[in-house]
Design a protein around this nucleic acid. Sequence first.
DNA 1: ATGGATAAAGACCGACCGGTCTCTAAGTTG
DNA 2: CAACTTAGAGACCGGTCGGTCTTTATCCAT
Lengths: 226, 226
Amino acid sequence: MVDDAPSATGSRGGRADSSAPRRRTQRERRETTIKRLIDATIAAIAEVGYANTSLGVICERSGVSRGGLFRHFDSRLDLMVATAAEVGERHIAQIRRRLSELRDPALIDALRLMRDRHRARENVVWFELMVAARTDPDLRARLSETGRRFFAEVVEASRLVPGTELFPAEDLDMLVTTLEHTFDGEAIRREIAPDPVAEERRLNLAAEFAEFLLLRRISRTHPADR
Amino acid sequence: MVDDAPSATGSRGGRADSSAPRRRTQRERRETTIKRLIDATIAAIAEVGYANTSLGVICERSGVSRGGLFRHFDSRLDLMVATAAEVGERHIAQIRRRLSELRDPALIDALRLMRDRHRARENVVWFELMVAARTDPDLRARLSETGRRFFAEVVEASRLVPGTELFPAEDLDMLVTTLEHTFDGEAIRREIAPDPVAEERRLNLAAEFAEFLLLRRISRTHPADR
DNA sequence: ATGGATAAAGACCGACCGGTCTCTAAGTTG
DNA sequence: CAACTTAGAGACCGGTCGGTCTTTATCCAT
């Protein structure tokens, strides 16, 4: 029994020992633990899938015990729902950030960005959760609220791409959703049957087609030559 | 101990008792059991998903015991692979059959048929298996062989649609694959956020995209006005 | 009929699952 | 400091999982 260190009364006084586990508030403890749990859940779902992401692997990866987990989440489902919300937010944030980094992006750039984002961890996890929700009524019920908001935000974010202002909301919604499906499907299939040539062709043709739709809109809005 | 019925020597002689379990060859026994197992697996995956389709539920639904199952399949994985092959064949067969029922179908009819097929059991099961394969190396390895053949056959079947002869192989392949992704994604999302209006609109968009590809090709082959 | 092979049944096994419970550690409040 | 609350640890539980094994039914060849 060493009972070392003068029991750390010195939170004040600026002790030089920086390696000692700094004192944290309850709120900090709580939040970092929750973050570690959700991060571990995201990583696990991306790597081994929703079904194989057991509480055991989550605890192992996060370094949090079962007791710690159940302090913050009442059930596995609750943790999964929180994870869904988190990946949704990150996905949107990433899209907005990268889109604004590109100044005045061409359609093809925006599409490529979208495709890349759909191959990224956040969206893969969201996809896994969606697929799991199809056959899990509880998850489906909880996810549908999150889902509708998420879907709407994706469309909203797409408004950052120049040219989209020409589309009425309903058209843009349908178009963006279709692209999401396309890139989701591509991301899955390339795990089994990769086809980089077709991927590139698909991207280019999607851009051309979108361009075509835009031009058509313009010529209808301004029936120029007559 | 009743020891009823004269031990059924009378396979010959046309006994009127039709409810007695007719005598079957080993081959018949084997094949019907296998069929019952695979049918049960298909139904279970469609209803409760790949992960929840345990051997227990398969045995329950099929009325076959564990012993019976393991006589014909060495592992759950083997059964799943066989199931994948079966749904693949059925999917293709259905497409071909329905496509040939429509005499000279318009593009939009073919697309609607395709969409319906992607909502049907066979394709949903195939989709579940694909998603599971992403995070299950064994399943992925076994499915990739089946998959490539299956994907090729889908494209081949699409040649039955009038007009497709105008497409070069690479364009048609890309187009059909894109449509598959689109309808797969739509089929999943409508479980959480159904949107029938957008679905109909999307169908038209798909038709327009196909026509766009054609026009584009023609205008390049015959650089008309100059 | 009889002996041998194949088909099917179901009890059984260790591993792992989600969730509970008890106890200790750490922060908070007076 | 002491009393109290919150955070976290980890042994533990009943249930289910994929897979094995022994036993019985059925078909086939002779």
